[in-house]
Design a binder for these strands. Structure first.
Lengths: 199, 199
DNA sequence: TACGGTGATGTCATCAACTGACATCACTGG
DNA sequence: CCAGTGATGTCAGTTGATGACATCACCGTA
């Protein structure tokens, strides 16, 4: 459905609603179609029916339009760590947090995740942003572990462990022909990591 | 020594030599002095006695001027992994690689590392670039581990393990009042990580 | 009903980061 | 002596990003 198909209420709004979603959808489509770099912000804004200035009111920069699901991921991770039994061992908490995160990536999302990953993989600037989001997530988790009483550097190492497993499992999840669920891949990667560090 | 103190040979060169080093030095000084964002590339170039265009011939972008030591770090890591005994356990190889990397950070470099880290920490864009360099390093190490016969995802997990330990130990190394050597911090962090993952 | 505040948007001007195309000219090898 | 090379300069242009100010539907309230 295009912008021109919208039916108006009697009370006409000054602007079509949901500019942020329109911008995100326009950006996704244009990136997938013509590539990230060849797509200008002006073009995205025009497609969404707003001005370039409005784009930058909704997203801090051009990259950010691809990264606004990260808040939910961080909430899932940090929430699980915070809610975990105070006596649980670090790796038990990590496993719980990974389960909570995995719930955000059901099988239906895999196709979309693959498309998005393709866009990100094709542009170093987008990879940088993705890595910054993961680093922010790591910091937030380390904080949560410190609140549980873990000292440094153990808190940071535990947070990094969780994020590394997530990262590696995610890469497997979106790789071609992969069938296993994200949660299974997390559990398997956790076990592999355990084996490696014990070697 | 400033640019104006150079003594010329009988055969005058068309331009003063070493433009790249002059640019890097100028950038470091200006960043430390006025902050990264408030320093323009034009200003760096002017200080180094070249044009803005020449800056971009030596560095791919403004950030890159702070990150051209990474090649040596990657060589140290990958070289150690490649040179390690083919039968050695992954964590033994990781320890060897960390020792090789630690040799690049002797006590004399700590003050400089702290100053540079201060600049990077104050700017998200620079953090992104640093993370991208670490990710590139991780990929290169994973490659080296695969060449040793490790399968996925073990190769990636092992490479991530090495880089996480490096990263956490580095953060400790440059933290205020820290006295221990980088190599010691790496060994200690490795041991902590072992304990965490075994929990 | 009138009216003042609010918020999402538009308009305009400006800057800084980059890039492509082409010119310059000391140096070098034959 | 001359043609080629490479590091640099010059210049024009695009794009991302930001500040300042205007607009006007909507909402609550007198």
């Amino acid at each position: 459905m295009s912008v021109h198909d919208i039916t108006y209420d009697v009370r006409m709004a000054r602007w079509e609603p949901d500019a942020q979603n329109r911008l995100r959808d326009a950006a996704l489509t244009l990136f997938a179609d013509g590539g990230y770099e060849r797509t200008t912000v002006a073009e995205i804004a025009r497609t969404a029916g707003v001005t370039e200035r409005t784009f930058f009111r909704h997203f801090a920069d051009k990259r950010e339009v691809l990264f606004d699901g990260q808040a939910r991921l961080q909430d899932a991770f940090v929430g699980a760590v915070t809610a975990a039994d105070g006596d649980a061992a670090p790796m038990t908490v990590v496993a719980t947090a990974l389960d909570a995160a995995a719930a955000l990536f059901p099988p239906e999302r895999r196709a979309f995740a693959r498309q998005r990953a393709g866009i990100v993989a094709a542009n170093p600037g987008l990879q940088e942003r993705e890595l910054l989001k993961l680093a922010t997530l790591t910091d937030a988790m380390a904080d949560a572990f410190r609140r549980r009483g873990l000292a440094e550097p153990t808190a940071s190492l535990t947070a990094h462990t969780a994020v590394v497993v997530f990262h590696v499992a995610f890469a497997q999840w979106i790789s071609p022909d992969e069938q296993r669920s994200f949660a299974d891949l997390c559990r398997s990667a956790t076990e592999d990591l355990r084996t490696v560090t014990a070697s």
